[in-house]
Write a protein that binds this DNA or RNA. Structure first.
Lengths: 110, 110
DNA sequence: TGTCGAATTGAAGAAATCTTCAATTCGACA
DNA sequence: TGTCGAATTGAAGATTTCTTCAATTCGACA
């Protein structure tokens, strides 16, 4: 019994828990992309992007292959779209709930 | 445009990124549970569990209701099972991939 | 070979997160 | 009212994560 499963799950979600990493995964759903292209679409320093790409690589959710002088990243497989979709559905509910709450607070000033 | 969506997503995943919080969500899938019962099933200090429950509460993914002298937590709705399922499928692949890699390394000692 | 561009790495400091311990709140109940 | 149990909160300290800047690696190509 190496790593307890719930700990592996927690690490997995933590790996997803960064705006730049989310953006990268979303962009890679349209197909492989060179670092340079990712950099053009995400507002972040090159070295910071590299660090976040390294996190994704270490987890195994993306692969990096060198092509000439550039490096191309791709999803390693796995239905990332399904995961992000499920997350979006829940998130939509949560945000809606928060808006309701906000609306109530505005209606009933103490 | 309040919070960019990819940032909300990242925060959402970060909220999931803790072993105790994962355990709680898994346990709550069987129905509402009192804090005392969660505490009995998870190996953690009471105050630490409280802190993690507070994180879940603030995100809105669970609700807490006081019943007499105990507090009962429940999933706030949202298909958490679907999300955890999607995560497990990807995670299974990733772990399998890592095992392959490990096996290769053991086969071909440099 | 020398150098340019693309990408990564290392180190240092800032910021966020976790755990622990002590103190506090809130019902229940004698 | 006084006190017990359940749960939360606050503060302090340790750990992890992120960003930035400088230095480095690796191809490409003149």
């Amino acid at each position: 019994m190496p790593v307890p499963l719930y700990q592996a799950k927690a690490e997995f979600f933590r790996m997803l828990g960064h705006p730049v990493r989310i953006r990268v995964l979303e962009l890679l759903q349209d197909g492989p992309k060179a670092v340079r292209d990712l950099l053009a679409e995400i507002d972040v320093e090159a070295s910071s992007l590299s660090a976040q790409l390294a996190v994704l690589r270490r987890s195994g959710i993306v692969t990096a292959t060198r092509e000439g002088s550039t490096v191309v990243y791709a999803l390693a497989g796995g239905d990332v779209a399904e995961l992000l979709g499920a997350a979006r559905r829940i998130l939509t509910e949560l945000l809606a709930g928060q808006n309701e709450l906000l609306a109530q607070l505005l209606e009933e000033p103490a």
